[in-house]
Design a protein around this nucleic acid. Structure first.
Length: 279
DNA sequence: ATTGGGACCTGCTCGC
DNA sequence: TGCGAGCAGGTCCCAA
């Protein structure tokens, strides 16, 4: 659910309110320690002790990960999984139904809520062993690191469906199921095509679709579709759902040609596409 | 090595 | 109307 545009929206929201703020208390709600939150970290107690009292100096993003710089010594890494939300609220607001971790900041609080508990929370000491290795992620799609040449090189010889390859975070970081569908539609490429079969021209269209769709989705502050109930740090939905062409539009008519949009499982994930426009 | 599939987790939708 | 089965998705892990 939260893909690059959603995570970037939250990052921007939080950066504007959190930088310079001190974390005064960390509270775990329910049994946050048993699932992925902190799964690879020694303990909740150590985590809380290490985080408390530090000042948030910056909020960065890498792929779908958020990185909070806590002074020069620690980086707090957070992944929203599928249903994670980060809610910035006055400290007096009642906790979210699915709040798992609450960071208290002077007069306000940041809640990490996550119904399905796939979210991850971790704490780094820069330069030390990192259990969650961000270096395995592919290039940031909205940076110079992503290029046509890189895609061409990476796709070469790959038999895997292009849909599955776009979802692979080690190929390009930040694309999930919503945007892979929309990107392939915008590029006019059949999601089932082996990545290695794309021509130079198709890779060019794909590159432009990746940057174009993601940029537009960031401008619209993410997608809040039926099964992807995203909200930003202030609890507001995004606006890109109004621009979805194929995602979750099975049996609707293709906005380009009028053909019926189909849904098919590719690489274990649902893919939506127009069988006429996407070749 | 690359790829596919199941596991994780649980709220919600849909069909009977 | 009520109930239960199955779906949804991001990532990890194991097996082929």
């Amino acid at each position: 659910m939260p893909e690059l545009p959603e995570v970037e929206t939250i990052r921007r929201d939080l950066e504007s309110v959190l930088v310079g703020t001190r974390i005064t208390e960390v509270e775990f709600v329910h049994d946050a320690g048993v699932f992925r939150i902190l799964r690879r970290f020694p303990s909740r107690k150590v985590f809380a002790r290490e985080v408390t009292g530090r000042t948030i100096e910056g909020v960065d993003r890498r792929g779908k990960y958020l990185l909070f710089r806590l002074g020069p010594e620690r980086i707090l890494l957070l992944h929203l999984g599928m249903t994670g939300q980060l809610l910035f609220r006055p400290v007096t607001t009642a906790p979210d139904r699915f709040a798992r971790v609450v960071f208290r900041l002077n007069g306000s609080k940041l809640e990490f809520a996550d119904a399905r508990k796939f979210g991850e929370l971790y704490l780094y000491r820069p330069g030390h062993y990192e259990a969650i290795d961000l270096n395995r992620l592919g290039p940031e799609p909205l940076s110079r690191d992503l290029s046509r040449a890189y895609l061409s090189r990476t796709f070469q010889g790959r038999k895997r469906a292009i849909k599955a390859v776009l979802l692979d975070q080690s190929v390009v970081a930040g694309i999930g199921n919503i945007y892979s569908d929309e990107i392939l539609f915008a590029a006019g490429i059949d999601p089932r095509r082996p990545a290695g079969s794309l021509t130079r021209k198709e890779i060019d269209r794909l590159y432009r679709a990746i940057t174009g769709i993601l940029t537009r989705a960031v401008e619209r502050r993410g997608t809040s579709a039926r099964d992807e109930w995203f909200v930003d740090a202030r609890g507001r939905p995004g606006g890109f759902q109004a621009e979805l062409k194929v995602y979750q539009r099975k049996d609707d008519l293709c906005p380009e040609c009028g053909e019926t949009v189909v849904r098919e499982t590719i690489g274990g994930r649902s893919a939506h596409f127009c069988p006429r426009c996407q070749k």
